[in-house]
């Protein structure tokens, strides 16, 4: 299980005087307010490879292990021109896809992005990808920051 910890790096230089202590406190408060942290665990993050520049699907399991609901609003990556959250579904014998603007996950609940259901649609590859590569994708959350996850590139046969 790949656990992702949100890390804050605050470095203070200078002498250990009262002023720098104050500065450190101020800075740590500022960081805490500016970048709230999503309390989520992401596992099985993977991108299923297709040839050429065809759109790919990104899958993962997201577990909210915090005490408040989290809302996933989308994803961005330098490796793709555009990423959309989608859900596939079957209706009257037809396979369809609908955009998903946001997805709220209650505390202690998980959502599965998996074949035939929720997925990230990754369009416009900015680099060539091969099986075994990892590609960073940033998941974005409403009011609780963002999280960059390394997605593993897997063969199309891998579900």
């Amino acid at each position: 299980m790949q656990r992702i910890h949100w890390q804050k790096h605050v470095s203070i230089s200078g002498t250990h005087g009262r002023g720098s202590m104050m500065l450190a406190l101020l800075l740590s408060c500022a960081v805490a307010n500016a970048a709230p942290v999503p309390s989520v665990v992401i596992t099985q993050a993977r991108v299923r490879l297709l040839p050429g520049n065809l759109p790919l699907a990104g899958y993962f399991t997201l577990t909210n292990d915090g005490s408040a609901p989290v809302t996933l609003t989308g994803a961005i990556s330098g490796s793709f021109k555009q990423i959309m959250m989608h859900r596939s579904f079957e209706s009257d014998g037809m396979s369809k896809m609908a955009p998903v603007a946001k997805l709220t996950i209650q505390p202690r609940k998980s959502v599965h992005f998996r074949p035939g259901s929720y997925h990230l649609m990754l369009m416009g590859r900015q680099q060539s990808l091969s099986v075994g590569d990892t590609v960073p994708i940033q998941l974005q959350f409403k009011n609780s920051g963002a999280l960059t996850v390394e997605f593993k590139v897997v063969p199309v046969g891998a579900q």
């Binding site: 065809l54 699907a57 989608h86 396979s95 896809m97 997925h119 891998a158």
Partner: peptide, 19 residues
Amino acid sequence: FGYTNCPDICPTTLATLAQ
């Protein structure tokens, strides 16, 4: 029946058949 720009369902179905 499908289309190659389909990121999820078509590759999933074809991968199932390949399996």
